[in-house]
Nucleic acid binder design. Structure first.
Lengths: 198, 198
DNA sequence: GACCCTTATTGGCAGCCTGCCAATAGGCTA
DNA sequence: TAGCCTATTGGCAGGCTGCCAATAAGGGTC
């Protein structure tokens, strides 16, 4: 029978990636406490001590996973403004919904911990990612990304968006079209009737 | 020096409450893993074993704390419909914002874990509480609480509300008036332009 | 192609945390 | 005041985490 090499020496980057992939899977299935480092190491096919070597401790590994997951949306290249406000709003919503494939839905709706069981560091990571997305949306609809209040309002809109996405892709209580309608009308109202009044 | 009674025999209800209060405080300060049962027991002035006696295990105690926190909003007696739609919407928003005193903000914006680090049980508790609130809002604005899609849309609105509340009471990036404006206009739009189209 | 040397990788030790259970004693009742 | 029910305690056993010194994979060098 084929004897699997007991030790395999990989480049730090490869090994890191391998561990992160396994951790991503396990942490997505069960809550933090329920996943032991022993299990994480086994899933990655590695000695437990290697986790500490690469990430410091369990918590740091977890934060790394959250960091990667939070940034998934690929807030990159979306065609900037063009057309009427209605069209631009529609484009922004489309981008938001489009960046969510069902498989990634789990990660994208990440809102992690708030309130009881809150975790300042996790919160900070997510806030950063959400703020980035809010800034992008504000640009798309022709707002001023530098306006703190406007940005805050759009960040709040982001919560609505993640809520709608969850209703659609996880609970199945809204169709994608319904979610789109909800977000389009809401965002339009926010841009037209709320932002000017802040 | 006054010798504090080494053992004090309380009624189960009192002891339970005493432990829950201490746990509430600690869990609000630091994430679950960071709080040890030893610490919880010390904070409650009780032997560690008593926690298990009353709640089973640490997780169960935590869930109990979350359960109580999630239900805080006192979704009880709010004057039902009256006046124009605009007025009813305003009343609903007022109720949502009013049920949030700064001290309780921490608990009320509880959205707990989603995605990475998700916890099915915590999720279920919060979903239940949020759905209850959504049903109440739907009643207030004259919608049909039995309409699943409408309820889902309003649940999503609840996320917007919690987001706005956080921007206001925690981040301080929105004033209460601004948060109110954002929620009022959004909810009005949802009722007028979204619900009919679901 | 064989040897070396850097460093990726391992395995086990020490401390802490958690759940469990039998022993203890507080305080109400008769 | 004596007795009993049961609230409360303390310590044991197993598991998990972080740390560190020992080990060997495999690319570079001659």
């Amino acid at each position: 029978m084929s004897e699997v090499a007991r030790r395999q020496r990989l480049s730090p980057d490869q090994r890191r990636e391998q561990i992160l992939l396994a951790a991503e899977r396990l942490f997505a299935e069960r809550p933090y406490v329920e996943v032991s480092t022993t299990e994480l190491a086994a899933a990655a096919g590695v000695a437990r001590g290697l986790l500490n070597h690469y990430f410091g401790d369990k918590r740091a590994l977890y934060l790394e996973v959250v960091r990667r997951a939070a940034l998934l949306p690929e807030i990159g290249d979306v065609a900037l403004p063009a057309g009427s406000l209605a069209e631009r709003v529609d484009a922004a919503v489309h981008w938001f919904l489009g960046s969510i494939t069902p498989e990634r839905a789990t990660y994208l709706t990440v809102g992690a911990a708030e309130g009881i069981g809150d975790d300042a560091e996790v919160r900070a990571i997510l806030d950063g990612a959400h703020d980035l997305a809010a800034g992008r949306v504000l640009e798309l609809v022709g707002g001023d990304p530098a306006d703190a209040a406007a940005r805050a309002a759009v960040r709040a809109f982001g919560e609505l968006a993640r809520g709608a996405i969850r209703e659609w892709s996880r609970a199945g209580t809204l169709t994608r079209e319904q979610a789109h309608l909800l977000l389009r009308e809401s965002l339009l109202t926010i841009v037209q009737r709320v932002l000017p009044g802040l």
